[in-house]
């Protein structure tokens, strides 16, 4: 249970970190909060030749309300998001999801960017990013590029990041008007990764029908699954329990859950459908009350 030896670098700036990453030609890993990487190294599941520690890169830890989006530096601690009034105003879905992310001791250290780049299929924050149509600003040798959530989450534990790139920031576009949010998951114990989970965002237009509907499932496939077909079918409709049931059924039609020690694929699918219905109801209740 002790990590293998590695070279340690603590860059003070992002250009320095990118240069150090290139220097090791793919054998180095960047370390953010380290709440997944350190145990993986202790169990020797990961054996990087070098660690580039981003904790001293101050330019990556920020939270800014921009003109059209809230911008979150990749090294922003999960606990900072949890306690931010700015996030509460503009992206409240975070505040529904974060209490489910491990325990506060882990969130004190764990970063938003780290969770996204790891892309564990059962993790909450990639699902939140997908539901909020986050944009990912990626820094590389030739400058920055921006990728949408659908493009960023590339598959099981993998993202659009190239080996010599570092996630700089995440932009969460503002959702104009009054939105309702829903978030729910089922885990073996509080703080565990989800067996299945769901997140929803709904908004009503002036005519009382939905003009925005987002539904994301997680823990049931390679990464967060945006239920595009279910979303499209809800647009222009009036909120109703029948609508949520139909959307939930449509959402799980497109997933391929895995079976493991904790749950069968069938169980995960059934839980996902129930949770999808539940989060849509939650979001709709917020519309009614808010």
């Amino acid at each position: 249970m002790k990590p293998a030896a590695f070279v340690y670098r603590a860059p003070a700036s992002l250009p320095e970190a990118l240069a150090q990453l290139r220097e090791f030609g793919g054998d180095a890993r960047v370390i953010a909060g380290g709440q997944t990487l350190v145990p993986a190294m202790s169990m020797r599941l990961a054996r990087p030749a070098a660690l580039i520690d981003l904790n001293g890169v101050a330019e990556l830890a920020f939270l800014r309300a921009g003109a059209d989006a809230i911008e979150i530096g990749a090294m922003t601690r999960q606990r900072t998001l949890e306690r931010s009034a700015e996030i509460g105003r503009h992206a409240r879905l975070f505040h529904l999801a974060l209490p489910h992310v491990a325990h506060f001791q882990i969130r004190n250290r764990g970063t938003f960017g780290g969770s996204l780049c790891h892309n564990d299929p059962a993790a909450e924050l990639p699902a939140v990013a997908a539901a909020l149509s986050a944009e990912f600003v990626i820094a590389g040798a030739s400058g920055d590029r921006t990728v949408g959530a659908d493009g960023f989450f590339a598959g099981l534990l993998s993202t659009a990041l190239e080996p010599d790139e570092i996630l700089r920031a995440i932009r969460i576009p503002y959702l104009p008007g009054s939105c309702g949010f829903g978030f729910a998951e089922v885990a073996r114990r509080h703080g565990d990764f989800a067996l299945a989970g769901a997140a929803a965002v709904l908004r009503l237009g002036g005519d009382g029908t939905l003009d925005l509907a987002r539904l994301v499932l997680f823990g049931v496939d390679d990464g967060p699954v945006r239920a595009h077909a279910a979303e499209a079918a809800m647009l222009g409709e009036r909120p109703s329990d029948d609508l949520w049931s139909a959307a939930a059924a449509a959402a799980v039609a497109g997933i391929s859950p895995v079976a493991d020690l904790h749950a069968s694929a069938l169980y995960r699918r059934e839980v996902a459908e129930t949770l999808a219905r539940r989060v849509l109801r939650q979001a709709a209740a917020e519309l009614r009350d808010g």
Binding site: Y8, A10, V38, P39, R109
Partner: peptide
Amino acid sequence: CEHGVCGACTVLVDGAACRSCLLFAVQAN
């Protein structure tokens, strides 16, 4: 447990409770 689950190694780092088994000593510089 030495992998961040049990919490027995929790310490305050700059005031924040953290698992000391999920940090390298060099990071606490």
